[in-house]
Amino acid sequence: MLVGAFACAHTPQLIARPETEDRELVLRVHAAFARVRRRLAMLRPDAIAVVAGDHVEAFFLDAVPALAVYAGAEAAGTFGPYEYRFPVHEPLARAVVEQGIERGFDLLYTQHARLDYAFFVPLHFTMPAPAVPIVPLHVNVYLPPQPTPRRCHAWGQALGAILGARPERVVLMASGGMSHYPGTDRYASPDFDWDRRILDTLRDGRGAELAALTGEELDKAGNVELRTWITVLGAVGAAKAEVYCYEPSWHHGNAVVEWAL
């Protein structure tokens, strides 16, 4: 069953803070992560299914899946001095692949690929003790052509049905967003107004409206990663979002959100 849903920023400056970043802002985002961690302890999940956009880490141009499921025994990666490793909930990962295919989603699955920091950063701050296994779910956000928001939402609806019918207590966590433009000439000018309008929509329980966004709109708003949120929105339906924090830095709209189910 699906017992909780969250969305978390994962910008690497939250874990490796350069001097360019406002320390107090970073700590406020950490406080929101700590709140998620406490909520996860209350929700007692058997697994956390993390929907994240791979930063060209597991998948380079040699093979670019739109949607992928990590179904190995464990998932590991590195980022700078961090070496991380998480057990994978294998029966759940396998069920997602098998039933996802059955439902018409032509998923890629892998049993060995490097785990991107997009998965690691939120878990570094929010994983309850004792740790629970994860299921990494990839959505292509950076290598065009990406899956459409409508397709992500439909995949989220399928995920909600698949996870909802399982005996395990499962939390869905989107990792990514909000507005930022890494590597582009707009890096220092995120679209915070756009983010705030989206957050208002989510607070109202109207997240399904995001399925009608286009890939061009997401790119223009610096929100290519919002595909991970839109995926989770497919699973949470009309649940209203509680915004734990929205902290705009000079280059990034950092948001942490929960949908109570």
């Binding site: 690497p12 490796a16 803070r17 350069p18 890494p182 582009t184």
Partner: peptide
């Protein structure tokens, strides 16, 4: 653009020309 961005960051991290606070 993302690869340009992160390749540059990782090189700077490795060179030690930028300092980071790790959490």
């Amino acid at each position: 653009p993302y690869l340009v961005f992160m390749a540059d960051l990782r090189v700077r991290m490795a060179r030690g020309t930028a300092t980071f606070e790790y959490f």
